[in-house]
Write a protein that binds this DNA or RNA. Structure first.
Lengths: 207, 207
DNA sequence: CCGCATCCTCATGGATACTG
DNA sequence: CAGTATCCATGAGGATGCGG
């Protein structure tokens, strides 16, 4: 753990725990789903293995993360404690705050669809429930895409290789619209539906 | 600015801007009130002057902070931009999240009453308005204290030297009660009042 | 393979001195 | 007062080793 700020202030004490580099991104990853060490290395996209190891120890000692044993035996699963999961609220606030930073698109940055499992609920509120699974439909340039959001991640259709890029552009479009005030939550509603009711989806997609 | 995470994710991009050490505490300080360089050095309690200088430059370049010229002439005033001020929401979320970290009391940590101008509204919600000024009354060990919260900071009475320590213990007591589930917001209401109506205050303090 | 631990290099943070 | 400049300690990042 990095040096404490030494301030009797809620924000300072919070940052003493989750202010170190990578910590909040680890929490984000575990908000998608509990994960193994290798999943975190992949999902964090750039973290050094020694740092991940250190941070997991810190977060465990602080009571944010806990180790579990996988059902089958010897594999270790990292998961958020109840307290750690309560970081969803401030994290969602930061995601909403960052909307103006997203409008320029991905540029050179890496992208993982599972990140949308945290971002979409933050941006769209209760209209998307990722607790179970959800189907989000987004129209791009008149073409319609379905995105399956589950606890394990996110899958896009059609599966033709352009799908993943389409998801990236979908979030960019949504965030852009929100940030510029060009879109309202109510305007997005026709593009979003929860739990794929086939009839509802057909109506939404006009198919 | 520290190295970018290189992730097309709202949280990662937010942290690219405000994730560096001291950045969020600078924002906290400016949420209390716009301030001069010296005020920030004092209010941040421990920041190195070169770091403060660097961070202010970063935050200005990112559009979180802006420099203003004081009315009188050559003095520089640092203030949040409209976007920067929107960090109040996630910061308040972190303050609420940190409640379990506050229950052990100040220990060796420094304390500045002005920090309560951000923390109290976060913990007590709309019951305290720091936009203008507010009077918060807290009972400690049967003794009653009044805390004047204004845009410029916070002042405690009685002014007998024990007052400041009392404020510290007051927040500890409030936070402790909330965290342990021993206090409910409605239970705190009798101890809190907005805008000192003399009659109401006398009733509250039983004086 | 997974789950780390070690080693090394270099950027960043922290404390202090200094300047317009 | 409002910052710069300087020096040193620390932490990040990358490569690699290593036991299960």
């Amino acid at each position: 753990m990095s040096r404490s700020y030494g301030q009797y202030c809620g924000l300072a004490r919070a940052l003493d725990v989750i202010g170190d580099r990578w910590n909040l991104l680890i929490v984000r990853q575990l908000l998608v789903a509990p994960a193994r060490y290798r999943d975190l290395l992949d999902g964090l996209a750039g973290v050094a293995t020694n740092l991940l190891s250190d941070r997991l120890r810190d977060l465990e000692a602080a009571g944010v993360v806990e180790r579990r044993l996988a059902d089958e035996g010897n594999a270790v699963i990292y998961a958020l404690t109840a307290w750690g999961a309560q970081l969803r609220e401030p994290i969602e606030g930061l995601i909403r705050w960052s909307a103006p930073l997203m409008v320029r698109g991905p540029a050179e940055d890496r992208f993982r669809p599972e990140w949308l499992a945290v971002a979409l609920p933050a941006l769209l509120g209760s209209r998307v429930k990722t607790d179970r699974s959800a189907t989000v439909g987004v129209a791009i340039d008149g073409q319609l895409f379905q995105v399956q959001v589950t606890g394990k991640g996110l899958d896009a259709s059609p599966h033709d290789g352009r799908a993943l890029d389409a998801v990236v552009r979908a979030e960019a479009a949504i965030v852009l619209g929100l940030a510029a005030g060009m879109l309202d939550f109510d305007e997005i509603r026709p593009l979003v539906e929860v739990e794929g009711d086939e009839t509802a989806l057909r109506a939404i997609f006009g198919a």
